[in-house]
Design a protein around this nucleic acid. Sequence first.
DNA 1: GGTTAGAGTCGAACCGGTTCGCAACGGATG
DNA 2: CATCCGTTGCGAACCGGTTCGACTCTAACC
Lengths: 340, 340
Amino acid sequence: MATIGDVAQAAGVSRSTASYALSGKRAISADVRRRVEEAVRQLGYTPNAGARALATSQTMVIGLLAQFLEDEFAPAMLQYMLGVSNTARELGYDILLVSDADGTRALRRITDSRMVDGIVLLNVAERDERLPILRSATQPGALVGLPADCSGVDVFDLDFEEAGRLMVDHLHRLGHREVALVSQPEHVIERGGAYVWRLQNAAVEAAKARGITLHTVAGSSHQPDVGHDLNALLDAHPGVTGLLINNEAAAAALPTVLHERGLTAPEDLSVVGRYSDEFARTFSLPYSSIESAPDRLGRMAVRQLVRRIEGDVAADEPHVVRFVTPELVDRGSTGAPRTA
Amino acid sequence: MATIGDVAQAAGVSRSTASYALSGKRAISADVRRRVEEAVRQLGYTPNAGARALATSQTMVIGLLAQFLEDEFAPAMLQYMLGVSNTARELGYDILLVSDADGTRALRRITDSRMVDGIVLLNVAERDERLPILRSATQPGALVGLPADCSGVDVFDLDFEEAGRLMVDHLHRLGHREVALVSQPEHVIERGGAYVWRLQNAAVEAAKARGITLHTVAGSSHQPDVGHDLNALLDAHPGVTGLLINNEAAAAALPTVLHERGLTAPEDLSVVGRYSDEFARTFSLPYSSIESAPDRLGRMAVRQLVRRIEGDVAADEPHVVRFVTPELVDRGSTGAPRTA
DNA sequence: GGTTAGAGTCGAACCGGTTCGCAACGGATG
DNA sequence: CATCCGTTGCGAACCGGTTCGACTCTAACC
């Protein structure tokens, strides 16, 4: 492979001149610049990433830590990853993908060895073990998901409280008085998936304020268990006229369950989910849903991260905690309750 | 951050001695080794990846090129990615994820700049534009998917011909005489997704040899279109007693379609798919299927790639083209045809 | 007792970029 | 004509590792 020395020689200038001609950081005569560029083309020169990283202490790589946990619905994760990856590329960065089960060790490895200029953490838990390590790293970090302690990092998440209220209010306004919320399995909550109870608590509050009955159940994250959970729920509470689904697997399983029970939405049952539009299209889910906007969150996280990396933001500028306002995408699965 | 110079100074030795003490590439007295290791611990030293890459011309990073194409079922891709990522990590490599729409430019960028020691290409097309670039790169490459020209790279894929025969034979043996095969959309084939017609052609041949009727149709890769495709198929060929599904989206849509038509498998219709067990569990698909083994293919590709990177294989050792023998996972969705 | 082998350490060079300080040059200015 | 300044290019140092050759010292061998 050609080095910048080869380019310099071919252009008849020194290495430093060649470097300046390419970076434009000092004035270079038009003639020399042309000769250097010609040499680059001739030799097919591409800078060596390692050497450049060593000299500039910038790798132009962002670390992406994605956890694929046992009881989580993997396809949902993919969309966050793509949002991050595509945005990073637009801004000139590559992605180092870390899917290690042991996220803490992996995080320490890639930050200490300076393989990356910054870190994006996905699927952040209430008390995430990776967070202390990220704070002690010299690279900035951006999170998708809300931890208990947001200090030292930029945080982006859906406003799950508002989502919970929105779901309840929507059905209340249509006249529903007894509804049920299907959440994630206990495991997810115990592990620290705070978003589950953030939505749930807000929904419970809103239901109380509106004076309507809200049953909450944990749904499995896997088929076919989650189908059984849904059936059990409908058996136990025959008075329920509305369903709130904060669980991708449950949403994916619902069409079959309803069909088997001979129910249709919104005639027999109103349904509101919480998942992305992309998800809805992939699985052809006909339910109105709160848009979870994974690509948008990934994009916001990377944008802010790159601002910090490139010093566009003062080092002492406070870190942001930004919530995306949930929006209800109407797919016609809600209506007035069936009059008993 | 501490450098190896700091470590050497703290241990009272030269930089080279510190380096040898850590790498073990030369004999070092037990005393010195202990002092160096102590200094490493004390200072929290981690080698700088860029510097090491520059010195050794090894980055310990593998480039993973995944294409997310418009009319493809994204969740299926995720499993290949995880197979590759996890295996790479086990072997000490990190993954540079490239999801660029423009795979050719991205590939050139990461190989020329020596960011990676090797490349894994997913979703390889019959005439893949990325291949010439990969061949001209100095790093070795491994493919998941079979191109027309396999020279210069190691290739791993499911034996789709055998899969096609297996599906047909299985139903033939049970007594079926009129079956239908649902493939991918035209786009996928035109773009070069060779595996679609590899399976299809073999199925057609096998059907002819067995003297049974085989209808082939292209199914959409998105909901709800693919549901319509399935319904149209069943309407057009009421005599069909068996269904072969080489299309993830179609498989995911089938339970609903069958339910709506009041059909059950295997009583009314025998069904054989082609997807991974993980996929079946995620979507609770109750159909017997040819295991597509994405994690296994990813694993094989990385294993061989690392062997080449590390020179465990002679440079002139011929490249391999290895097919995974398809296996039918029996989920009880096939049986003797309904006697008309 | 001299030679030799091997163990253990160091200094210096190298990987391929970037960047700082300096100097040569030419034109404008007083 | 001397001075000053901006433009343009060069040489050298540096980033943080690895590795080669040479040197010293000790133990073993003939």
